[in-house]
Nucleic acid binder design. Structure first.
Length: 868
RNA sequence: GCGCGCUUGGCGGAAUGGUAGACGCACGAGACUUAAAAUCUCGGGUCCGUAAGGACGUGCGGGUUCAAGUCCCGCAGUGCGCACCA
């Protein structure tokens, strides 16, 4: 070395060194997992939700995969055999949109995006086993999915039935909910309508009970996700009640001469005001055939769309069918049957009975159409003589009145009595109803997994035989014409019936892409096998010990995956019940937005000048919007590739971990990234300084005691922070250790060099999960011929060095802080109290007061409760 | 509309029911420098006070407790999900 000072030497050249270390890891096969978990150590399966290859990696991905990588590297250091794979959720609508808009084939577009995004992931230095990479759009993957579908069909878990879709009459195509804007098709602008198609369903409701019950055992899932799933599955106890129809329309036989409803409140039957039926209810359909006004109303309901949100936000409206039913509890009473736009076809029986006094929606509806409002619920504490029902339904605790044999009973008792009575008189029975509906998987689209079915006029729907799998997508398709390219492909769908050999047609629908993502975690355990799974591998690696992804998937994806796992178990493809034993849901990455007039500007197009932000181009002040979810339309995005190029992968990784707790949204700021970069270089300077100046052979001495205490305390703190998923706290503690390392240099003295070397060594190991490249670089400085950090164990704190010699105890008088005292750890209560009272300021506060109570929490706090 | 979260200095945030504001950003002061950058050190919730110290303070209103950011009830704001976006 020359006579240059260490400071001048010390810059971490991430441009050169990050790829260097990535190559070393690659050569050492550091991240390749064995086919089957080894017997000599515990396994740990870390998985982040795989990305949709939309084009570029975005910073939300960087956050997600960095979190996962921290877990993977930390667990590996702790001696686990880690499986940490990556792949692509590669089917989906955007590829078809790109095809329609730009004429590029969905497959080409997807594979190009994958290549781009894979490169970015690799530049970030994630500890992924790339040998296991999968893309769901490849026959190697979706062919096995077809096998699973057929096995489920054989096992009775798949059914064909009718379901409604959003239909665009101009484009002649089915639209996704997101393609319906204010009831109109996003491209054509045409009013969309509900259309019924015959579709394939997976019978997730068969598992409603276990899916609900097992939630209780998922103790490493966030409570809120479990609550959401619980609500979604929606078990509710109630009754089916048959209301006899007075004059059923001719030819209406599907339910005999009665209208059946599901209710959770059979206790309020005496409060019957009306029957509400969905527009798709058979009775409504029947009426519509005969009555043009009814038909017009049904038609209108169809325009509302298929989402629950649309149904419940639309103004409540109804149509009186003129039919009447009899109240089974009170044959004297009849009520009208209305078609109502807020009744869900697919929940319960598609019909409700309206009891305005106990349900706000029913009350609003009854008032609007001037229907009877019998009052049968007396709120607890109200008097029958004085209580009148206003515009608020009774939803709190209440007693039944004006209710025949139920009068005087509490809601709970009345429900039980009502069900008993219904069953006795044969007008209904108690049932358990679920909000969860079966999973419709048919999509009328090209870019998805073909459903392996052949329709034959003679033999019906036939499964594609195993030896004809996979059913692959044709390459030569046209997106010029509206509709599904598979359907209008000249030859693809025409095949021989596998059963009779006569001409038949393929199913042209493809699978919901949620199916693809419902088993990819299992496929990673044997990504290239000729069967969907391999028993030893899948049962050895599953379940996923830590799954990490966005909370936006809290319900659908996670529930489908849980169901699919059970369905795969039932069909013999694996032997676990739950796919993910640990779940972590991370927040979004947000950024300020900038607007110059009506023009949105990218963050790199503006700069801060004093208190204002101006456009670099025009020099004008720009409007700074609050930090919100990054979106292309507001241009408040940041490119991970740019960040890596400017600051390096480790800086990007460190920044996304450093400030916000990962379950919360984090704000991306240029200043924050710069701070991360500074800290990275500071550590590099500090450690290279230690490597060059501090003698390796120095023995520990008195002067180093403080630093050693901090070093070992930091091991405990960082370990705890990583266990708790609070890397932001780990970062804070590492900042402190770094400061202590710097201070120790100035202090000097016997044993400082050894303590500094120890601290440098420890800091290197502790940052490794977060800044893996820098860690390798630092270790190479400290031990030029040593092992790679990825092959080293996590540091362990020495108990003796953690001991504290004094504690600071807060002293309160009547809960207010009046001073602090320094005591020996675990000092006796009497001594602590005496010392507390001796404190000048405390004594002043106690003056003239009588001590009523003395609270002493060892090593923490003293509180004198005083009177007077 | 229904469901589920979140809310702490100028900003991001820390805090087993026990000293609120760790750590970082931004800001200010100082050191180094011819100068700047970089780096290092120090300061800071608000108000009153020269200071010692005091009052107030974790979205708002109540409650439980010796003690509440933390637990309970109500409200507001904001975000996410709602079954064909992924």
């Amino acid at each position: 070395m020359s006579d240059m000072t260490p400071h001048e030497l010390s810059t971490f050249d991430f441009h050169a060194r990050e790829p260097f270390w990535q190559k070393r890891w690659d050569e050492a096969k550091s991240f390749e997992a064995p086919d089957v978990p080894p017997a000599d150590r515990p396994k740990y399966y870390v998985l982040e939700m795989f990305p949709y290859p939309s084009g570029q990696l975005h910073v939300g991905h960087v956050r997600n995969y960095t979190l996962g990588d921290v877990v993977a590297r930390y667990k590996r250091a702790q001696g686990y055999a880690v499986l940490h794979p990556m792949g692509w959720d590669a089917f989906g609508l955007p590829a078809e949109n790109a095809a329609r808009e730009r004429g590029v084939h969905p497959g080409t577009w997807t594979m190009q995006n994958i290549a781009t995004m894979r490169e970015t992931l690799q530049r970030l230095g994630f500890s992924l086993d790339w040998k296991r990479e999968i893309a769901t759009c490849q026959p190697e993957y979706y062919g096995q999915q077809q096998k699973l579908f057929l096995d489920m069909l054989k096992g009775g878990l798949v059914e064909r039935r009718d379901a409604a879709v959003n239909w665009d009459p101009v484009d002649q195509t089915v639209l996704a909910n997101e393609q319906v804007v204010d009831g109109r098709g996003w491209r054509s602008g045409a009013l969309i309508e509900k259309k019924t198609l015959s579709q394939w369903f997976l019978k997730i409701t068969d598992f409603a009970e276990p899916l609900l019950e097992t939630l209780k055992k998922l103790d490493r899932w966030p409570e809120r996700v479990k609550t959401m799933q619980e609500r979604w599955i929606g078990r509710s106890e109630g009754a089916k009640v048959r209301f006899p129809l007075h004059h059923p329309p001719e030819g209406y036989e599907s339910e005999g001469d009665a209208c059946e409803v599901f209710t959770t409140r059979p206790d309020t039957l005496f409060g019957l005001s009306f029957i509400g039926i969905a527009a798709d209810h058979p009775l409504a359909q029947k009426i519509a055939q005969e009555n043009s006004d009814a038909a017009a109303f049904v038609e209108e309901c169809r325009r509302v769309g298929t989402s629950e949100e649309a149904l419940s936000t639309t103004e409540k409206r109804g149509f009186d069918t003129g039919l009447r039913v009899t109240n089974p509890f009170n044959p004297e009473q009849t009520a009208p049957v209305w078609i109502a736009n807020f009744v869900l076809t697919e929940y319960g029986t598609g019909a409700v009975f309206g009891c305005p006094c106990g349900d706000q929606r029913d009350l609003d509806f009854a008032r609007k159409y001037d229907l009877a409002v019998p009052s049968v619920l007396l709120p607890t504490g109200e008097d029958e003589a004085s209580f009148t029902l206003g515009e608020k339904a009774v939803t709190g605790p209440a007693t039944l009145y004006h209710s025949g044999f139920l009068t005087g009973k509490s809601t709970k008792d009345a429900i039980r009595a009502a069900i008993e009575h219904l069953e006795k008189i044969g007008a209904g029975q108690g049932v358990t109803n679920w909000r969860l509906r079966d999973w419709g998987v048919s999509r009328q689209r090209y870019w998805g997994c073909p459903i392996p079915i052949i329709y034959c006029d003679s033999c019906g729907a036939q499964p594609v035989p195993d030896d004809q799998l996979p059913v692959t997508l044709p390459e030569d398709v046209s997106f010029e014409r509206p509709g599904n390219p598979l359907d209008h492909h000249p030859t693809w769908k025409h095949v021989a019936c596998p059963s009779c050999g006569k001409p038949a047609q393929r199913e042209t629908d493809t699978c919901d892409t949620f199916v693809d993502s419902s088993w990819y975690f299992a496929r990673y355990t044997s990504p290239h096998a000729k069967t969907p799974t391999v028993a030893d591998a899948v049962n050895g690696w599953l379940s996923v010990d830590q799954y990490i992804g966005g909370v936006e998937h809290a319900i659908l994806h996670l529930l489908y995956a849980r169901f699919f796992t059970r369905a795969m178990k039932q069909t013999g493809h694996l032997d676990v019940d739950e796919p993910f034993s640990g779940l972590f849901t991370q927040g979004m990455v947000t950024h300020e937005s900038y607007r110059d007039g009506d023009q949105w500007l990218y963050p790199e197009e503006v700069e801060q000048r004093g208190d204002v932000v101006v456009s670099k181009k025009t020099g004008r002040d720009v409007t700074v919007g609050r930090s919100e979810k990054m979106s292309k339309s507001k241009r408040n995005t940041v490119s991970p590739v740019d960040i890596i190029s400017h600051y390096g992968a480790d800086t990007a990784r460190w920044f996304v971990l450093s400030d916000s707790p990962p379950e919360r949204d984090m704000e991306w700021t240029a200043a924050g990234v710069a701070a991360a970069a500074r800290f990275m270089q500071k550590l590099y300077r500090q450690v290279s300084d230690v490597a060059q100046r501090d003698a390796r052979e120095a023995t520990h001495g008195e002067a180093g005691a403080d630093l050693r205490h901090i070093t070992h305390r930091t091991i405990v703190a960082v370990t705890e922070a990583l266990e708790n998923f609070t890397p932001n706290v780990a970062v804070a503690r590492l900042h402190e250790l770094s400061s202590a390392l710097g201070e120790a240099e100035k202090k000097g003295g016997e044993g400082i060099a050894a303590a500094r070397r120890e601290a440098a060594h420890v800091v290197t190991l502790l940052i490794a999960p977060m800044m893996p490249h820098l860690a390798e670089e630092l270790m190479a400085l400290l031990e030029p011929d040593g092992a790679l950090v990825v092959e080293r164990a996590w540091p362990e704190a020495q108990e003796a060095l953690l001991a504290v010699h004094k504690v600071t105890i807060a002293v309160q008088v009547r809960g207010k802080l009046r001073g602090t005292i320094i005591c020996a750890p675990d000092a006796p209560k009497e001594d602590v109290l005496a010392q507390a009272k001796a404190d000048e300021n405390v004594a002043k506060a106690l003056e003239g007061k009588r001590i009523v109570k003395e609270i002493h929490v060892p090593n923490r706090i003293v509180n004198f409760v005083v009177a007077g």
